[in-house]
Simulated scan of single mutants.
Amino acid sequence: MSKKYAGGCGHIHTHSSNDPIDNHTCHCSVCKRVTGQESTHVVFFNHRDLTVDNLEGLDRQPFNDQNPDGPLELCTCATCGTPIMLDDKQRRIRAIVPNLMGHDPESLPPTYHAFFDESTGAPRPDDGRPVYAGLRPDFVWPPSM
């Protein structure tokens, strides 16, 4: 099976031969806090579609330190500390941030802006992509596995 999308670090590799189910530029406060970026390119894959070759080599911590019991865990390489993916404890999705997790951002272009909050005073994105206060309206979370 081909590996259409691949990333990770020198110790842990992720890959998928299936297309992502969502691909957006995130403007949420959690992504800003975790990445230090003003906006973050985020890609969701169905949980079963993003394969990890060394799950035992991952360190896991809550993605949102203000909600440590939330569903997402930030997985980093236990050897070098590189962020590898976000893993959903409910096994619905696995998410990557291409520019931080070894994937090619150009092969996974975002299609819209998510979690944009006008009250922050940030300028509204004007790159022609739709802008939403949450995920795109037609997004449906996959069932838990």
Rank of each mutant, 00 (worst) to 15 (best):
C26A: 11
H27V: 03
G128C: 07
T79G: 04
H11R: 05
C26L: 01
K4R: 14
V30Y: 09
P98C: 00
N99W: 11
G102T: 02
F44S: 02
E73H: 13
G57M: 07
D53N: 15
R48M: 08
E73Y: 15
A78D: 12
H41W: 01
P83A: 10
F44I: 03
D69L: 11
T40C: 09
S107E: 12
H15E: 14
N99L: 10
P62E: 06
Q37W: 09
C77G: 07
P110S: 11
C75K: 09
R48Q: 15
G7M: 01
Q37S: 13
H24S: 12
E106W: 03
V97P: 02
D19M: 00
D117K: 14
S144P: 08
D127V: 09
P98W: 04
V52F: 07
P110G: 03
D65K: 14
I93D: 00
L72F: 15
G134F: 12
D22H: 01
Q37M: 12
T51Q: 13
P98M: 01
N18D: 12
H103L: 15
L72R: 06
L100F: 14
P98T: 02
G134E: 13
G57L: 06
P142Q: 07
V131H: 07
H27I: 02
S29N: 15
C31G: 02
S144Y: 04
Q66H: 13
G8V: 05
V97Y: 01
R129F: 09
M1D: 11
H113T: 06
H103E: 03
P109Y: 01
L108N: 00
S17L: 00
D65A: 15
T35M: 04
D65V: 12
T120M: 08
G81W: 09
G36W: 06
S119Q: 12
Q37F: 12
L74C: 08
W141L: 15
P123W: 02
D49R: 02
F116Q: 06
C9S: 07
D104V: 00
V97A: 09
H13W: 02
S29C: 05
C26I: 00
L72Q: 08
A95Y: 00
L58C: 10
T111W: 01
T82G: 08
S17Y: 05
Q61H: 11
A6E: 15
G102V: 06
E106Y: 08
T35C: 04
P142C: 09
P110L: 03
C26D: 07
L72T: 01
S2M: 08
F63S: 06
D138T: 15
A95Q: 13
H15Q: 11
V97I: 15
G8L: 02
G57D: 05
K3T: 03
L50A: 01
D87S: 14
D22R: 10
V140F: 02
K4W: 00
P130Y: 03
D69N: 14
K3P: 01
G102L: 06
T82P: 03
T76D: 11
L58T: 06
D59E: 14
F116Y: 15
A122I: 04
C9Q: 08
C75M: 13
Q61Y: 12
H13C: 11
H47R: 08
S39G: 07
Q61C: 05
P143G: 09
P125S: 10
R124G: 01
T25C: 10
N18T: 05
M85Q: 12
G128V: 07
